[in-house]
Design a protein around this nucleic acid. Structure first.
Lengths: 342, 342
DNA sequence: GTTAGCACTCTATCTGAATGAGTGCTAAAC
DNA sequence: GTTTAGCACTCATTCAGATAGAGTGCTAAC
């Protein structure tokens, strides 16, 4: 689609613009050394590239800046990833070496590393509950009217919810019900739990305990939580140092969205595994028109997955970020897999 | 210290400045109606007030703005609180009416209400662990090397931590230890727990189980967490709409601090109960020099307490915020007390 | 096909003048 | 003695016009 030379020039422009955040002129490209043509020649090519939609011009006498299409081309034809610097690798080793036990701790720590290495905002999604299974269930009465329901998953995640005890249900009722659930449904995937409760535990409860209806209601309440993935943010204030967000209005749109966890979850999740790059308006959400979101997936035990992502301006250091995400997602998978096998 | 008239003028200036965020001139005060003197007279008083340190002047030909001392006087001599608007009261009723069970949910919800009612940033501290007591303890093995420790407090809070199982310790060892703890130390205040474990459980374990050292180590690890109060933030992006934070540098200092939960905890906690106002440099932390922090305490069961706070620019609607905090802290105490009695 | 040269465009920056909000001081009025 | 009108003065803000400079597009020469 693009000639060799056009491709080189586009590359050089994107590269320069990522560094400087200022429109790039023909002369500065010519002086870079990697495109050995005169400014005039480069100008001609730039005019063509603009006509093709890869570049934009803020005004007639300014240099060019990449359009979304330009970034997209840059990313799709990017040179193979540079190896990371030694000091960065150190941080990864920390992740593996530190005695981080719970999955959430690993995820959170990875988010901090990611934000501090890239100077962008990191958004991480905890593992999907979909494929984890039930390890333990407990119903603990606090007083006459309320109890805490505790669910432990196979990955060691603990979810808890305070529920009200339906009238007439006794402590021993609850204990028996919980024991039944542990005996019969331990190891059952979380997404099948409700169905299995109805099919297998229902009659059992009906036989042994009064208040069938109430107990089922109680179980229902207890299992509501823990459905949604947890969101971990880090480096949100890195957004402030980007010149494109000097405008407080734009900044607020983005930061506001970062507080809406359900929307974030929706935006980060995608069906496919691996690395994803969404540039500017490729993001569905209006607030991200000036942003690029790069995501990768990590695996927990080969079946259940989570997502790690970096949010920054469209003028983002794609190569570095993609490389980092790739490595970190692998490191996380390594740190997490095997530990909580079936 | 100040004459009646000086006090009135200072009041008027602070009031105007809070609304407009612009230096206040003598003419505009004179036109307000509540200080029936000519601009010249007011000018003279303003000069005196500046000399006394209650006002400042950005430059010679500008109006006056309140100094920290001016705000302090304003707050200390403030008219009794205005009753809240009807629509605001609705939100409070929501808090009481909604079937919010867990303490954390109430606190979080209160934070959201607070931020949306005031348009400032709310910072809430969960209840201090200090006075809650142990309800239940559990050690649940996940695989050969790791286990989850779960602690439930008398207020229904659930803390969990993944710990590694010391070599040689069996599942039944752990179960027995947990049972022992529940039997002997249920109801013991959390801050005494470790001491009581050594004094009462230690020998018991030594008698019944091998691996005394390892089991004690395991217990030690399990009880590390849950010490610090949780921090709930809401409306952080409200900081962006304040004209004093149009300067991104200042903004970043504040937002960065908001991410440091331990520092926040330290800044919010104070020995005394009731409402506290910290204006500008009265805050210990450098990042808050342009901010005022107003805090109130809520009680959980008459013994254990938490803090709710509002962070805004020193030019803050003190009357409204103090009124809201007062009412909301009461509402929270009402919603929380009695539910988790001893 | 490439490049040197040149006219042209447009932004950013600086200057100086005009504007106006607000003050401080003095002297008159109450 | 207190209050106020009047006036000179200060200083930030705004605007217009001038200038500089970066960069372009086009043409003609290589």
């Amino acid at each position: 689609m693009l000639s060799e030379r056009q491709s080189m020039i586009l590359n050089a422009i994107v590269d320069d613009y990522i560094r400087s955040a200022e429109p790039v002129g023909s002369r500065s490209i010519s002086k870079r050394g990697d495109v050995a043509f005169s400014p005039a020649t480069i100008r001609n090519e730039m005019a063509d590239l603009e006509e093709l939609g890869f570049l934009e011009q803020p005004h007639t006498s300014a240099g060019r800046i990449p359009s979304n299409k330009g970034y997209r081309y840059y990313v799709d034809h990017m040179a193979p990833l540079k190896p990371l610097k030694a000091e960065d690798l150190k941080l990864f080793k920390q992740l593996a070496a530190e005695k981080l036990n719970a999955v959430e701790e690993v995820v959170q720590h990875a988010g901090t590393i990611l934000a501090s290495m890239t100077n962008y905002t990191s958004i991480l999604l905890g593992p999907e509950m979909f494929n984890t299974s039930l390890k333990h269930f407990q119903l603990l009465p606090l007083n006459e009217t309320t109890a805490v329901a505790i669910i432990v998953t196979s990955t060691g995640e603990v979810e808890n919810k305070t529920v009200s005890i339906p009238p007439g249900v006794s402590a021993s009722d609850m204990e028996r019900t919980a024991n039944l659930l542990n005996a019969k449904l331990s190891g059952v995937p979380m997404h099948m739990l409700k169905a299995r409760i109805y099919s297998e535990i229902g009659q059992e409860i009906q036989r042994h305990a009064e208040h069938y209806e109430q107990l089922m209601k109680l179980l229902d309440d207890s299992l509501v939580s823990g459905k949604d993935q947890k969101v971990f943010l880090s480096g949100t204030t890195n957004m402030l140092i980007q010149p494109e967000f000097r405008d407080i209005g734009k900044l607020k749109t983005v930061l506001d969205l970062l507080e809406e966890t359900p929307t974030l979850t929706r935006l980060l999740n995608s069906d496919q595994k691996g690395i994803h790059v969404r540039i500017g308006s490729e993001n569905i959400h209006q607030a991200f028109v000036n942003c690029s979101l790069i995501t990768a997936t990590y695996s927990l035990d080969g079946e259940s997955f989570g997502t790690i992502g970096i949010l920054g301006p469209t003028r983002m250091e794609y190569a570095k970020v993609i490389g980092t995400l790739d490595l970190l997602s692998r490191a996380m998978s390594r740190a997490l897999t095997g530990r909580y096998g079936p």
